[in-house]
Amino acid sequence: MRRTRALHALPATALSAALVALGAGAAHADPHAASHHVKPMPAHVTAPYFEAWTGESPAALAAESGNKYLTLAFLQTPAAGSCTADWNGDATQPVDPATFGADIAALQARGGNAIPSFGGYGADTTGTELADSCTDVDAIAGVYEKLVTTYGISRIDLDIEADSLANAAGIDRRNKAIAKAEHWAERTGRPLQFSYTLPTTTKGLADSGLAVLQNAVANHARVDVVNIMTFDYYDGAAHDMATDTKTAADGLHAQLHALFPHKSAKDLWGMTGVTEMPGIDDFGPAETFTTQNAATVERWAAAQGIDTLSFWALQRDNGNCVGTGGANACSGIAQDPWYFSHTFARFGGPRR
């Protein structure tokens, strides 16, 4: 996401007794024992981003908001040049059952899962996105594989923006590592998807984002979902954010058709993802995603049959700071708590 990693958090959230019991049991489970029984992602999923640096429990907030799937942001290296990815780039939060293992197991026990996400604005502007930082393709692929065997996840998200879009060597290494991890998953019988989260214009990907996908095709890396960030346009124009979501996705659909001419229109929509930013985004009030926009986009997403509907971020899904733009812990608009979660949850439920 186009976000700085300010360490803002919501007030502490109380865990329900049921979730405490569930999480405690999950903490003692052997994640490796379940890794060969990983549940594939559903064809249509709602998976808001969770700001992993706040110290909150993703499983607790998922239960409170009604979400089954969360995208956990972010993994990055602790320093440029490293080949080790830690949660939040913090070496005390490695890819290990002790870090988010109980939370992820709790999501899985409730019929959902986590989607670990690499990159984000903070990593992409400091050389600490994994493939920008590490020059060893095998090591990059090994980190992706370790996420699967440690947590039993079935999708990895790659949030590539800002400086990472101009790092041709990093782009090439990342796609080579995706292809290696996909071959590993096929050999070992594990479902594994990769999504690319990319900035967009109101008419589709800019050339830099499109080049990431072109390189993936050249490297035989299968991209399962292209997830566009339909916010932070910074073009100075007035925006109806729901209309702009549709035109951005239409533009992406045409770009995907050019990349994958043998795929049907339905299949191309089925590899499309959309991530909104509820309320006032980083640009300001001209780019405000309203509660009415959310209902419109959810209906459109269901009708089009896109793969993923998401937003940045779960901790913002409340109206505690009306008038404030780009906040980490609130949307900046008047809304019911968890309004966007509840509205988008319909997309991930039974098809209409």
Results as ranks from 00 to 15, higher is better:
residue 196 Y to A: 10
residue 138 D to T: 09
residue 208 S to V: 11
residue 185 A to Y: 07
residue 203 K to G: 07
residue 184 W to N: 11
residue 223 V to E: 07
residue 184 W to G: 08
residue 166 A to H: 15
residue 219 N to A: 13
residue 228 I to G: 10
residue 197 T to I: 03
residue 155 R to V: 02
residue 198 L to Y: 08
residue 211 A to R: 01
residue 180 K to L: 15
residue 173 R to N: 07
residue 193 Q to K: 05
residue 230 T to D: 11
residue 202 T to N: 06
residue 162 A to V: 09
residue 157 D to W: 04
residue 202 T to I: 12
residue 215 N to E: 11
residue 210 L to C: 09
residue 212 V to N: 07
residue 215 N to H: 09
residue 217 V to A: 03
residue 147 L to N: 05
residue 167 N to Y: 00
residue 234 Y to Q: 08
residue 239 H to D: 11
residue 153 I to W: 01
residue 202 T to D: 11
residue 163 D to I: 01
residue 205 L to T: 01
residue 223 V to T: 13
residue 152 G to C: 04
residue 138 D to A: 10
residue 139 A to N: 01
residue 215 N to F: 00
residue 154 S to L: 04
residue 163 D to G: 03
residue 199 P to L: 04
residue 153 I to H: 03
residue 182 E to K: 15
residue 177 A to T: 08
residue 162 A to D: 15
residue 223 V to L: 08
residue 170 G to V: 09
residue 231 F to Q: 14
residue 177 A to Y: 05
residue 203 K to D: 11
residue 222 R to Y: 06
residue 211 A to L: 03
residue 143 V to P: 00
residue 222 R to K: 12
residue 192 L to N: 07
residue 221 A to V: 10
residue 226 V to N: 01
residue 193 Q to C: 04
residue 174 R to N: 15
residue 174 R to I: 14
residue 161 E to Y: 12
residue 184 W to L: 10
residue 174 R to F: 14
residue 234 Y to H: 06
residue 215 N to L: 09
residue 193 Q to V: 08
residue 142 G to V: 09
residue 205 L to D: 13
residue 200 T to I: 08
residue 163 D to L: 06
residue 199 P to W: 03
residue 219 N to S: 09
residue 232 D to A: 14
residue 196 Y to M: 15
residue 237 A to M: 08
residue 153 I to M: 05
residue 159 D to F: 00
residue 207 D to C: 00
residue 200 T to Y: 04
residue 190 R to A: 15
residue 181 A to S: 07
residue 192 L to Q: 12
residue 191 P to T: 03
residue 190 R to W: 11
residue 217 V to P: 03
residue 193 Q to R: 03
residue 195 S to G: 14
residue 212 V to A: 13
residue 195 S to M: 10
residue 224 D to E: 10
residue 171 I to Y: 02
residue 164 S to T: 13
residue 231 F to W: 13
residue 142 G to D: 12
residue 237 A to W: 02
residue 174 R to G: 13
residue 237 A to N: 13
residue 149 T to Q: 03
residue 209 G to L: 02
